[in-house]
C-alpha cells in the first residue's frame, strides 16, 4: 500500500494496518468512552458514600467493590480516568502548542537567536521536575490547573527540540526554495509548506507525550501533590489502594489495571506513529 500523502490519512493507515495496534486503539477507545460517559454509567457519582457498607469486596452491586467510605470503586475508577485523560490530553496540547511554536520560531530565526533559544531549553531541562512542582504547589496552592501548567512546562521542551529539528529539515528542502522563488512570503512559506510537512513527527511525539504526561500526573498524585480529594485520579486511587493493599486488594488492582492497560495502548499507538515518522 502506498502511503497517503496527507499526514492524517497516513496516521490512520498506519494505525489500522497491524492487529496489535488496532486492538490497542479499540481497547483504549472503550476505556476513554466509558470514562467520558461516566456520569451516564454511574449516575450516583464518585462521591456517593454508603458508610454503613464501608469497605466491601466486589459484588453484584459494586462490581469493583467499595472503599473504606463505602464509595463505589468502579465509579471512582471511571471518574478518575476522566481526570487522568483530561490531564494527559490537555497538558499534551499545551506542550504541543508551546513546543511547536517555540521550536519553529527558533529554527526559522536561525543563527544566534536559535542558539540562545535552544540554550534556554537546555537550562530548563536541568531543573528537577519534582522540586519544581513542589515549589509551584507551595507558592500557589494545589489546583488541577497548576498540574497542567507544571506538566506542560516540562513536556514542551522535548516537543520544542523535535519541532526545531523537523523544521530545520523541512526548511532545507527544495520546495521551500521553490515557494520563495514564486514570491511566497515568509509567513506563507511557514504555514503552507513548513508546518504541514512537520505534522507526522509532531503527531508521533504528541502520541507518546500523552502517556508520559499521564504517568507524571499519577506520580504527582501518588506523592499527594496531585488532584485534591475527593476528586479521584488514577494516581490517587492507586495511592489509596496501596495503603490498604493487604486488606482490600481490589482497591489497588482495578485502578492499576485500567491505568496500565491505557498506558500500554497509548504507548503502542505512539510507537506505531513514530515508526511511520521514521520512514
Amino acid at each position: 500500500m502506498t502511503p497517503a500523502a496527507n499526514p492524517i490519512k497516513r496516521a490512520a493507515q498506519r494505525l489500522f494496518s497491524d492487529n496489535l495496534t488496532l486492538s490497542c486503539a479499540i481497547v483504549l477507545a472503550c476505556i476513554a468512552l466509558s470514562c467520558a460517559f461516566a456520569n451516564l454509567i454511574c449516575p450516583e457519582g464518585y462521591r456517593a458514600q454508603d458508610l454503613q457498607l464501608g469497605i466491601s469486596a466486589p459484588s453484584m452491586e459494586h462490581i469493583f467493590g467499595t472503599d473504606s467510605l463505602g464509595r463505589d470503586v468502579f465509579a471512582r475508577v471511571l471518574y478518575g480516568g476522566r481526570v487522568s485523560f483530561a490531564v494527559g490530553v490537555l497538558a499534551t496540547f499545551v506542550a504541543v502548542v508551546i513546543g511547536v511554536a517555540y521550536g519553529t520560531v527558533s529554527a526559522m530565526a536561525g543563527g544566534r537567536i536559535d542558539a540562545f533559544m535552544m540554550r534556554v531549553v537546555d537550562v530548563i531541562y536541568t531543573l528537577p521536575f519534582t522540586i519544581f512542582v513542589i515549589l509551584l504547589m507551595v507558592a500557589f496552592g494545589r489546583s488541577l490547573w497548576l498540574i497542567f501548567v507544571a506538566i506542560g512546562a516540562v513536556e514542551w521542551l522535548t516537543m520544542a527540540r523535535i519541532a526545531r529539528a523537523s523544521a530545520l529539515e523541512v526548511k532545507s528542502r527544495q520546495f521551500v526554495e521553490a515557494a520563495k522563488v514564486l514570491g511566497q512570503s515568509r509567513t506563507g512559506i511557514l504555514f503552507r509548506h513548513i508546518l504541514p510537512n512537520m505534522l507526522t513527527p509532531i503527531f508521533a511525539c504528541a502520541a507518546l507525550t500523552v502517556p508520559s504526561v499521564m504517568m507524571l500526573e499519577a506520580f504527582l498524585s501518588f506523592l499527594g501533590l496531585g488532584v485534591q480529594a475527593p476528586l479521584p485520579s488514577w494516581g490517587s486511587l492507586i495511592k489509596d489502594g496501596a495503603e490498604l493493599m493487604e486488606d482490600a486488594p481490589w482497591l489497588l488492582v482495578f485502578p492499576t489495571l485500567f491505568f496500565s492497560v491505557s498506558l500500554f495502548c497509548l504507548n503502542r499507538i505512539g510507537e506505531a506513529l513514530s515508526e511511520d515518522a521514521g520512514k
Binding site: 496527507n6 528542502r173 527544495q174 520546495f175 526554495e177 521553490a178 503552507r192 509548506h193 504541514p196
Partner: peptide
C-alpha cells in the same frame, strides 16, 4: 522572473 529547477521531485510539496 520565474524559475524551474533541476530536481522536480523535491521542488513540489509532498503533502498537497
Amino acid at each position: 522572473i520565474a524559475y524551474i529547477f533541476q530536481e522536480p521531485s523535491t521542488s513540489l510539496n509532498p503533502v498537497f
